[in-house]
């Protein structure tokens, strides 16, 4: 029997008057949700064109009296937004890279190389996932400001972000499962050709899971791009700060119209990325 192409309602029902009514209600609810989702974007976009006085004026005026494009130019230049985006890309990109390197290596070892005490290591990593990172923030901060034995401080250094970002129990556990599911013959064939464990890591394990690694990396990147508390503690120098940290600091000293314009600019790259990457993210959450 051919699998019928349908949802909860069949296509025939969907076209009936009752179905049309239900469909219309769905559309109505989704349209309201869409307005709710988009409203902050729209608000910051138009408020970014207003004068400060106009933003503070009571009443409902979404559109500015005069479109002051200069606000956006000012925000872009005075906030050094290019610097901000580059910093965030370095912090998140380096973090994701470190996370992928550390996690793939650990997962490969746990899944294929059978280290002694493997189950214990695995259990401890799993337990770490159950402990909220926020609960040990304070000692972690002290360690990063004064590394034991070496007395190095990672304040104002991207290493202070990359090192904690590299630890992801989630990624290790997902990748361990993925490596275990690679059919044995792939490795056996490589072994016959005389490939070492290290070589098989690069030639078999990584290529066969590359799409999963890409999705995991993408999800991690999204998370790290918006991270706030940890970069706020580590990056005190304004030249190094990420989008979140810098914009938060700027709201204290700059006029409202400028930082709303800046906020809108800061929302643009993720928005553009969303429409490009939607299908990938969709696939990624069903791992």
């Amino acid at each position: 029997m051919a699998v019928p192409n349908r949802g909860i309602m069949s296509n025939a029902e969907w076209r009936s008057p009752k179905g049309r009514f239900i469909g219309f209600m769905y559309l109505l609810v989704l349209a309201i949700a869409a307005i709710f989702v988009l409203f902050p974007f729209l608000f910051s976009f138009t408020a970014g064109f207003k004068t400060s006085l106009e933003v503070y004026r009571p009443g409902f005026h979404l559109l500015p009296e005069k479109w002051n494009w200069q606000n956006y130019v000012d925000a872009w230049q005075r906030f050094k937004m290019v610097r901000m985006f580059i910093n965030t890309a370095i912090a998140a990109g380096g973090g994701v890279l470190a996370q992928i390197i550390v996690s793939t290596m650990a997962a490969y070892s746990l899944a294929r190389l059978r280290p002694i005490g493997k189950n214990v290591i695995r259990a401890v990593i799993l337990i770490t996932m159950a402990v909220p990172g926020i609960a040990y923030l304070v000692p972690r901060y002290m360690i990063m400001t004064n590394l034991p034995f070496l007395n190095i401080s990672f304040v104002n250094s991207f290493w202070g972000l990359w090192i904690p970002y590299a630890c992801s129990s989630f990624m290790i556990l997902v990748l361990t499962n993925a490596f275990e599911q690679i059919p044995k013959p792939f490795f056996e064939l490589a072994q016959v050709d005389g490939a070492s464990d290290v070589r098989m890591f690069f030639m078999v394990a990584l290529p066969l899971t590359s799409s999963l690694i890409l999705v995991l990396g993408l999800l991690a990147f999204i998370g790290l791009w918006g991270d706030f508390l940890w970069p706020y503690l580590i990056l005190r120098n304004s030249e190094l700060q990420t989008v979140s940290v810098r914009l938060y600091t700027l709201t204290r000293t700059f006029p409202i119209n400028l930082y709303l314009a800046g906020s809108f600019i800061a929302m643009l790259p993720p928005t553009i990325a969303a429409f490009f990457l939607c299908s990938r993210i969709k696939g990624g959450l069903t791992i």
Binding site: G7, I8, M9, N11, W14, G23, Y26, L27, L30, A33, A34, V37, L38, P40, F43, S44, I222, W225, G226, F228, V243, S244, V245, L247, Y248, T251, Y259, L260, S263, F264, A266, M267, P270, T271, A273, A274, F275, C278, S279, I281, K282
Partner: peptide
């Protein structure tokens, strides 16, 4: 999921806030 058209459009739209840095959204 029930929408025959516009399904992926709404899906992207609803997911959009997840991608926005929390602090930026909060400022707005």
């Amino acid at each position: 999921n029930e929408m025959r058209r516009l399904s992926s459009f709404f899906q992207t739209l609803v997911y959009l806030p997840v991608l926005i840095p929390v602090v930026v959204a909060l400022i707005v």
